[in-house]
Nucleic acid binder design. Structure first.
Lengths: 177, 177
DNA sequence: TAACCTATAGTCTCACTGAGACGGTATCGA
DNA sequence: TCGATACCGTCTCAGTGAGACTATAGGTTA
């Protein structure tokens, strides 16, 4: 767990390893479809990490040949090795959740049942939306993609995760009604 | 959702509202038993937030009368009002999760099945520990405490949450074995 | 061909946070 | 009275988050 790099940096390495050389903007697009649900990365970070990784010799930077001459980052052998070392390590720092709604729920003894019910309904709706979005993405997966197996697993986990919260908040809404 | 304060500041207000005047150190103790699972707060933050809230007139600061003369923070009427406004608002910013293990799983097509299995076993064990810890806390709850109702709910949610991940990783471990 | 529009792409800044090293203070046993 | 240990609090500094801001490309219209 002596991590050489930050998680977002490994994401950059991983995406480039899988999909080939990319610009920060392309990285941003990839992340929006996948990783952001369990590791949010603000877009500005994707302009900070690749140059840093290039300094470390894990990526190399080249300019596009035509047009805008955007900065395209390529994986080096050292980068591929760093990525595989990370993947081979079964440990990782513990998951963290930040859920403001649960914070409010913590103090429900200071609030009214009506307020709790309103909170619960809002949250149930939100988690239902997430679950539906995941189901949609699952249906849209391209079976030819080499990453489909892991995507499927992650989406199924996401659906069960969200459904768990839907059930929780719906029950609570019913009880507080 | 136009939040006047940060979530951690509302936690400070809430804990003082429920338990009476507290020092930053006492806040730290309270948070370790409850809130840190869905809203981690580094301890140094608990020395930064209360003075800030005092500047805003939401807390007042007094020194202990004896001994170490620690800084004890009391809730003001304005503080109580701010807390209730927050509790009465059913919206909140969306939950965020940061789970490095899922990040590794994202790139399993670049790893070996043995590595995936090792990761899965490690993660299953970790989540099982969390689930057990929650079950223990649930058993230890003091029914006389006014916050028991919300604590029970939150712990039950936590148990289901962790169990979900235990199941996920165990299945994956079995498949990759 | 200039003016404009929209999507695309990237930069910048600033307050804040996270992590943990570090420093003091009370308590207690030997 | 010394040292050990737990308790308590401060400090620092790189890194992050949020989003305003700037810039470029490729149309479309006039």
């Amino acid at each position: 767990m002596t991590d050489e790099l930050t998680p977002s940096q490994y994401v950059v390495l991983g995406l480039i390893a899988r999909n080939g050389p990319m610009t920060p903007y392309e990285l941003k697009g990839r992340i929006e479809q996948s990783v952001e649900n369990y590791w949010p990365i603000p877009h500005a970070q994707l302009y900070r990490d690749p140059p840093r990784l290039a300094e470390l010799g894990l990526l190399t930077e080249r300019a596009e040949e035509h047009g805008r001459r955007r900065r395209v980052f390529h994986l080096t052998d050292a980068g591929r090795e760093a990525l595989h070392r990370w993947l081979a390590d079964p440990t990782s720092s513990p998951p963290e959740t930040r859920n403001p709604a649960l914070l409010k729920l913590t103090f429900t003894d200071l609030a009214s049942p009506a307020e709790v019910a309103a909170l619960a309904r809002t949250q149930a709706a939100r988690h239902r939306q997430w679950a539906d979005a995941y189901r949609q993405r699952l249906a849209d997966l391209d079976p030819a993609d080499p990453a489909t197996a892991s995507r499927t697993r992650l989406l199924e986990l996401g659906i069960r995760h969200e459904q768990n919260y839907v059930d929780f908040w719906e029950t609570l809404a019913a009880e507080s009604a």
